[in-house]
Design a protein around this nucleic acid. Structure first.
Lengths: 157, 157
DNA sequence: ATTGAAAGAATCTCAAC
DNA sequence: GTTGAGATTCTTTCAAT
């Protein structure tokens, strides 16, 4: 478990909100067998403690015109510039994810682009021009098979 | 743009809901300068057309006890088994993302585990035992620098 | 598509346990 | 932590434009 203490009721609340983040607290209350006020209080507490990072809309990228997605492994030539490099990547709107990783790449990113030309432009004119970035390797995503949240079952059992 | 037609008002609605998926429709209505009923109707339409995939709670995985995340590139030995392999991966709860990609890996996944032992167990006893999977390469995520949705600005302009 | 109106439902706070 | 009650606000539908 993490630093914040999460009980079975909290886990049930989380699992319901993961399915539908707009589920009314009163409906959650009926599912959990406690009052709406208690749900309200527990959700607020989990927001404050950081267990809940936010309520997000999931949008189909293709509906917004983003038809190409790719994973890009990045090697950097100066480990002391980590934060500057991430900041540089953050300024590129096509880059939607960024992680430091172990192994042959130093940074792993995911980008969304309109088409292949846009992807090429994003890599050559933006990612490779971030100071400190030395090489990239691109894996074009042919289809998203699935994406979901971590499971909320009780790991302590 | 995608198949569904999205105008500037829809984009504004999406950008507000991406920030906070529980934002009341009446508040969105005030921001957009149209009625709550119109927002309600537009959101419902975007849900039906698939532009909106869902309203999701974003949870901090470490709060649930998942302290290790990794990207895993997978090579498969039988391209005709694609769907069976994805189904096999879907049955592993630790696998939260799965995409077909071009390049040296055929499938790219992301996993969340409690610790390194759990990660090793997940790879050796679950992922590598999915029929059709031949090799894996693991990149442990040292830290998530950022993660966000695609930008909703108008690409047509 | 958008609107206002109206009924029903939900949110949020609070004093009390 | 939990509760019920109450004031406020939101959701949802619908007939009309």
């Amino acid at each position: 478990m993490g630093k914040a203490t999460i009980d079975a009721t909290d886990r049930k609340i989380l699992s319901l909100l993961i399915r539908n983040a707009r589920m009314p607290f009163l409906e959650i209350a009926r599912e959990c067998g406690i009052s709406g006020a208690a749900i309200h209080q527990r959700v607020k507490k989990m927001e404050e403690s950081g267990v809940i990072r936010g309520f997000r809309l999931e949008v189909d990228p293709t509906a917004l015109g983003y038809n190409v997605s790719a994973m890009i492994g990045i090697r950097i030539n100066d480990p002391s510039m980590n934060f500057e490099i991430v900041d540089g990547l953050r300024r590129i709107p096509e880059v939607v994810e960024c992680h430091f990783v172990t192994g042959k790449y130093n940074i792993w990113t995911r980008v969304y682009c309109v088409d292949h030309e846009h992807l090429m432009h994003t890599i050559l004119d933006h990612i490779l021009r971030v100071p400190g970035v030395s090489e990239t390797e691109t894996f074009i995503s042919l289809s998203d098979s699935f994406g979901r949240q971590v499971s909320v079952r009780d790991l302590d059992q």
